[in-house]
Design a protein around this nucleic acid. Structure first.
Lengths: 362, 362
DNA sequence: CCCAGCGAGAGGCACGTTTCTGCACGGCGG
DNA sequence: CCGCCGTGCAGAAACGTGCCTCTCGCTGGG
């Protein structure tokens, strides 16, 4: 009987339980709950006493029980749509890494933790965890996971404006058209006569919007488009595409690369063809990597500000989780930053600069 | 009364509950649970019937309730010890990104999801989620978080051998001494007379073991150590340290850089001083980045195989969670891979190669 | 003097599972 | 004919919280 009581009281639990605290403090379970959560109307003396006893016993409330009761888990899903075969292109580019890092930080600052989940609809995993909401990076058109989540009533915020009629709660993105147009103007101002583009074959909105902006700009200024597309998830394909671009008979005298590794690839290809940068070839690429500050020559990069995007996405999501639910998707545009380095300055670059936010690197 | 019944039956629940399934299928709750989990002794006809009804109703079991009942959440924590002020050096280097990606993949393959958590002991966040175990990257000496977790009886597996007497369940690491010794031998074979080291000021075991191995090697071959140390989390400091190393009166004719960005930094510094690579300076750095395949010249890198490490760490952790608990920490050593490129081959490199696994890049 | 009002806290139900125990029933050996 | 056993399933007790409701004692106004 003593055995039975021992079993019932404190056996397999890791020495914590609200009942033990209540018994030790000589109050009821309700009082403990209220004291620790600051909920009820209790004198400060009782509050302190309960907190003290709880600390002394090393009491940790059970997250599972709280989640079951309240319906809130404090967990946010983080998903990136896969490009290739790998389940995670995650952190393939520094962009994703930075974005995820910022998102994690600001989620934690507000008491939430991030759960990394696959974009593939492995139902068992998705339903094995109670989420309060989800961040989706670059959702593809009519993403089945997103629609499923929204159907369940969960807030979904996407990094990158949703393609098609994807019913997300909110989204954050750059103004990719303006960014590309700004870069092309910048290159033209620096003396480029024929600007090429290194782009991707994937169907995400970033690639699509950027390419379209390029084509529109070309049509506007009357230049024939010169571009090569390759599967962005394959690093070798990038080097090959860079080489092809510079091997063309209508070789461009300036190139913008949409993806992070394009800078080194283009630089290597330029060396192979004896092209000097920036004298014979102007170079800009979209990257968050700091390596381009120390290449020879340093390469001008466009930063999409993934830290700001990650932060904004999480703030919007948690606002949606905790606050009033707006009926319309909230849209937020983060400005890009063009970091001008030697590779895009053919002549002494005077103060003539172009639309997006411009920063002068030393 | 009808109102009350409606409330009790199916009001705020998102149209799923084991009771509804049981009622719809005309069986008991027990039967539904057993049928879906393959547990009890039921004829296949009943199993199929229940599964069918559950699918039709779109039934999703509540993860919170299951966790509360079973004590298992299917969640694994992922933590990296912070170096600087930032809460997350996470994904600062491609190493972490790759490792995290591999860990996430293999965890998902076994039905677990990863939760990113801060190394700082923010108790509220850590205790807000029920973990089955934790992966710790580069735990520092006497890490308070780790000891707390172990005290709670949770399995903890670390990437990087634990410093001091940290009581982890298991750990996975490279043989850093052998790797450094191998590289130094490789450089010496290529003709280096005075090999320098670019290292860090942090106290993690990777930096410590590598530096010690370097000093030991120097003592062995009778070379004066030539090295510069800098805080690894600061990219600018890396460039400055690289410059200092090549500006010394006892300038080395070969350098090994312990951190990912060291390659470009050293290359830029070499250019500033008019040193040709590999003719005047041999270069190797530890990196997982593919940019070094296309720099001018391509740089020899040491890969720590973060994908294999991430996979191994998760396998060990899940084995510990599900399987028998061994009393001794399980240790696992992952071989490194030296990817030899132009920067470390002064003469026609004959087949003389050194200890660790060697791969010849084109 | 009596009762409304209020402060302080106790009791108990519900959240949705899993799982232990146990009941009914039919076949079968003794 | 009776008890026994294996099959097929139902009942109900947890798991640890949060919160709603209710009690109890005390006080001030009518």
């Amino acid at each position: 009987m003593n055995r039975a009581e021992t079993c019932r009281r404190g056996k397999r639990t890791s020495r914590a339980g609200i009942r033990e605290v209540a018994a030790a403090a000589g109050v009821s379970i309700t009082t403990v709950s209220d004291a620790l959560n600051g909920k009820g109307r209790l004198p400060d003396a009782t509050r302190r006493h309960v907190r003290e006893v709880a600390d002394r016993l090393g009491y940790r409330p059970s997250a599972a029980a709280r989640t079951l009761r309240t319906g809130k888990s404090g967990l946010i899903g983080l998903t990136v749509t896969t490009y290739g075969d790998e389940p995670f292109t995650f952190t393939e580019f520094p962009y994703f890494a930075e974005m995820a890092r910022a998102a994690t930080s600001s989620a934690l600052a507000r008491g939430y933790a991030l759960v990394i989940l696959p974009a593939t609809s492995r139902h068992d995993v998705w339903s094995n965890v109670t989420l309060d909401g989800t961040v989706v990076i670059d959702p593809s058109d009519h993403d089945p996971v997103v629609t499923e989540l929204v159907r369940q009533g969960l807030p979904v915020v996407s990094d990158g404006r949703p393609a098609g009629s994807l019913p997300v709660t909110a989204w954050v993105d750059n103004d990719h058209e303006a960014a590309v147009t700004g870069i092309l103007d910048h290159l033209a101002t620096a003396g480029a006569r024929r600007i090429g583009l290194l782009t991707g074959t994937t169907t995400d909105t970033y690639t699509h919007l950027s390419t379209t902006a390029y084509l529109n700009w070309c049509a506007l200024v009357g230049q024939d488009p010169v571009y090569e597309a390759y599967p962005a998830h394959d690093p070798c394909a990038g080097a090959v595409a860079a080489d092809r671009l510079l091997a063309r008979p209508d070789r461009p005298d300036a190139v913008y690369g949409l993806f992070d590794p394009n800078g080194t690839d283009l630089l290597a290809a330029a060396r192979r063809y004896g092209l000097r940068v920036p004298d014979d070839l102007l170079l800009v690429c979209c990257s968050e990597s700091s390596v381009y500050a120390n290449t020879e020559p340093p390469i001008t990069t466009l930063s999409l500000k993934p830290r700001r995007i990650g932060t904004a996405v999480v703030q919007l999501l948690i606002d949606a989780i905790e606050g009033v639910e707006t009926d319309q998707p909230v849209e937020q545009v983060v400005p890009t930053e063009l970091i001008v380095r030697t590779s895009s300055q053919r002549w002494e670059s005077r103060a003539t600069v172009s639309p997006p936010l411009l920063t002068r690197a030393r």
